[in-house]
Design a protein around this nucleic acid. Structure first.
Lengths: 214, 214, 214, 214
DNA sequence: AATGAATGAGAATTCATTCAT
DNA sequence: AATGAATGAATTCTCATTCAT
């Protein structure tokens, strides 16, 4: 059985059946969730016979976790690369902010999948995702910056976990609640709002953390 | 056909069949989502004959939207009451922060339901929820406070929509991503973290918004 | 329990519940057949509670046969009255022809009900209907006329049963196959076609039966 | 998916599942009508898993129309072949008379199905049937014969549509009302009656149409 | 690897009928 | 007589999974 090329999921070479299945599965699971997904539909999208799905993945659930795993696996590398720690604290936070945005913007599948996993108290995926995020250092990097800022007396010595959660939720929160908040705030151009948002978040966060000069 | 008592959903008086169905449905949908939910299980939980569900609600989908609608409807009043605008800006923001926490803490069903709705691009519920939230003035109240603060020269004249989104996401974001972030940040005592969080959010937000004296 | 007034089915006095049920049932059974009929729908049309149907008729099947029986019962009298044997053979046949037409034209319910009964090899109604028709003398009258005509040497001594069947089928056959034959023969104005038909049938029949003078 | 062999429906070769389903469905629908038919029973008769019915036909209603369509489709060829226009007018009418009889005698399913379709004002099948009959030329052939007879001065110039309807209803009418008329006329041997009938019909019809020599 | 056909265990929905009041 | 609620036994339909080739 051929190994799934982890880089294939995003590339556009002539895909193997297995790759096509994963691609189709990702779309299906993203659109309908594990329970709402239909194996028939996946087979159709992948242009293969339904039985092949079981040949390769043995069950719908397994296909789900394989597809998601593969998908998140291909994400982590991109994220790692995107963080450049050489610049100033402000720059790095901006970079991380960018990274969060990229994740959601570039990967249409991730939002629904993650939201449904978060909704599922029996989710086995959540741990996996936490692990991947941890390995990506998207979080630990923030902590480093804050710790250093505090040490230097630039930032206030607040509860760092709370600060981190604040920064993270400000960054990804909008992606999650956009369908609702857009209506309330009458945000028509999401694209534009997102462009402005990255700066706004870092600005608010830094100002909120800084020591007052008085 | 008896009207569903909107106050019954949360209370514990001897419920009518219809109320019991809604209660059971809410639990089932919250646990398993629309697709994962089983009508049989709902009937069993509600201690009624399965056919009664169709007698009152005509379809599983309809039961879902009725249940959710009823549920959100019963929320709005509680929320409205919880906001006391008489105090200082800081106090009011703290109140709103409290309100957000209350919503998620007191109503176990809301989180999974909202997350799945947010995940569903075909959701018809989202609009309803947005409307309910709008009517609750949880958002408009924040805007008023910020506008006044800016007018008085206390707060920086930043993009208000961005500020509002930041405040809201800081408040509810943790509830959403808790299963993941708890693992990464090794937060064991969620209860405690939440207690601290409300103050931390308002503190960071206010500091981030304030005009520097220099 | 009040007896159903057999004359009520057609009249328009303020109907009793039982009469309203029968009326509604007739319409429902005519439209959907015994299997397709819905007790709920009948109750709704009759503007009574579904349970009343069982109170009066004890089962759907029983309601069906009661309704049909009542209906056919009210027919028979009308038919009997319509036949006037005083005139010539030709006149009487024309009268009978008229009677057949009346049955189908005036009673919208009868056609579908009879066709479905004829389609049902297990029908218990057919015997009843045969009996009613027999008692109406619509058939025996034809026989008398033919017998007399033969005796007088006016009509050919053909197989009388065949002749009777021919006359009857020519008369009612069009009502049965109208939906099909209208399309094939492009008959747009059924009303008009029927008007002409009665004469055409008796004309063809008499000419076909008559002894050739040569 | 294998095409249904249109000749299979009547033959008895080792049938494919799809063919067996159609065969069983035809029998079931003929016996019980669309509403009375049971998918379980069809599956049992066809000796297949119930799900296969949905695999091939997606719904009971669709199975019905497919089965009926297939069935009528297989009829048309037989009918066409059976008409031999080479002989005299009398011969041809006799042929057509035979054809009508054959349709009903050889195909047990057709009578109940057609009667129920004729009973159903919402029938979508009727049009199809009309079309098939039209293409079979069973009707147009009669018209040709009559027109020619009139032109030659042999037949009276009566309303041809009426004459056609008379001929057709005399032929098929007995099949339709046999359960009733048999009782009234005490026809015990239907077989025998039918044998005689064909001649009787053509005889009556021709005599009725002929010009009187006087 | 690949396919069309097949299967079994559900799952939603329906509906005649009955009950309690 | 009358009603709203309730019931149970079907009945249609679905879908993950497997089989034979």
């Amino acid at each position: 059985m051929p190994e799934t090329n982890p880089n294939k999921v995003i590339s556009s070479e002539p895909d193997s059946s297995k790759d096509r299945i994963i691609k189709a599965a990702l779309e299906e699971f993203s659109n309908f969730g594990l329970n709402g997904a239909r194996v028939d539909r996946i087979a159709q999208k992948a242009q293969i016979n339904k039985a092949m799905i079981y040949y390769y993945f043995s069950s719908k659930e397994n296909l789900y976790s394989e597809a998601v795993k593969t998908f998140f696996g291909s994400l982590i590398n991109k994220i790692k690369d995107s963080i450049d720690q050489s610049g100033s604290a402000n720059d790095t936070l901006n970079n991380i902010s960018d990274a969060y945005a990229e994740i959601f913007i570039k990967n249409n599948y991730i939002r629904p999948i993650m939201l449904r996993e978060l909704a599922d108290s029996r989710s086995a995926m959540i741990e996996k995702i936490a692990q991947i995020l941890q390995e990506s250092h998207l979080i630990s990097e923030i902590r480093s910056i804050l710790e250093e800022g505090v040490k230097k007396g630039i930032l206030r010595p607040v509860n760092l976990n709370q600060a981190i959660v604040s920064f993270v939720t400000m960054n990804i929160g909008y992606f999650i609640i956009a369908p609702i908040i857009d209506r309330i705030l009458k945000i028509d151009d999401r694209e534009e709002f997102l462009q402005v948002r990255k700066k706004a978040v870092v600005d608010l966060f830094f100002n909120g953390m800084k020591v007052r000069q008085s």
